[in-house]
Simulated assay, not measured.
Amino acid sequence: MKIRVLLPTIMDIFNEEVHQEFAHYLDESVEVQVRHLDYGPASVEGEYDEALAIPNMLEKAIEAQNEGCDGVISLCFADPGVKAAREAVDIPVVGAGESSMLFASMLAKSYSVVTVLPNVIAMIENVTKSVGVHGKLASIRYVDIPVLDLVDKEKMEQALFEEMVKAIEIDKAHSLILGCTGMMGVAETLQNKLKEHGYDVPVIDPSFASAKVLESVISMKVKQSRITYMKPTEKLRTAR
């Protein structure tokens, strides 16, 4: 099995960490390839950034199929390009946001997302509606840390913990999701810390969730429905 993980950023600062994390998520027989964008935004922190990321994300998804990959992950909580890529390729495409929401809503009657900035709240709400789990959304909170500053793990973890406690106590969340794929490597630690404080709830890492969803879909030999995601019609199109 060979999967391609697409990062919607022109920066390569997360590439190695993503590769290492996915090596822990998946069986050693799975080949994981990580790619960032050739052109687009440095990070996705709003609709404008997402729109800039999608053209090259689609090109990268098509490239993955042409190079023999079995599936593609859009590794961003906003799931940029997922629906369009599902139309364009014949291999399964999954998003990190939708994958984590499906897990969280399955494991609890309600969930909260703790993300990076207020700029992305509307985007995340749109994903919850698209996935069909908006009715279980308790809240969307944010730590006010830009994506590119998430390299400070200690600061990020403390801020996440504080907002997660508020989500449980104030918003009545029964499960929690890390609302950015840059928040890698802290889900289990936060889950254990919450349990020590009396909150025995699941904390879902969107990267981990997307890896397991794609692995399962490929193993089941299924992909996106061609009734839902119809092939693009033949016409003239121009790119960059």
Rank of each mutant, 00 (worst) to 15 (best):
Y199A: 03
T238L: 13
G95K: 07
V133D: 15
H24C: 03
K60Q: 15
A53I: 15
S216R: 03
E59V: 13
K136H: 03
A209K: 05
E31M: 06
V113D: 05
A61R: 07
T228P: 02
R141M: 14
V34A: 08
H36A: 03
M11P: 03
I124F: 08
N126L: 11
M106P: 02
L190R: 14
L148C: 06
M230T: 12
V203N: 12
M101P: 02
N56Y: 13
I227E: 10
P92E: 00
L102T: 04
S139I: 14
E163C: 08
V165W: 01
V93G: 13
V116M: 15
S207D: 00
V44N: 04
M1H: 04
I121L: 14
S105N: 11
V30H: 09
E125P: 02
T181P: 05
T9G: 06
L214W: 05
M230K: 15
H174P: 00
V203G: 08
V44Y: 01
L160G: 07
I13T: 13
L150Q: 15
S110V: 00
A96K: 01
E157T: 12
A64E: 02
S210M: 10
A159G: 07
S216Q: 10
L52W: 00
D38C: 06
E87D: 14
A84W: 09
I170P: 05
L178Q: 02
G40Q: 11
A108R: 12
A122P: 02
L160D: 05
V89S: 03
S130R: 12
A209H: 11
Q20L: 15
S210K: 09
L7Q: 07
S43E: 11
V133I: 06
S130I: 09
H36S: 12
A42H: 04
D200M: 06
Q224A: 08
A138K: 03
D38I: 04
E162N: 13
S105Y: 04
K223D: 03
A51F: 14
K212E: 04
V213D: 01
M184Q: 09
E17Q: 06
R35L: 02
V133N: 09
A61S: 12
M183H: 02
M164D: 05
E28N: 01
P92S: 00
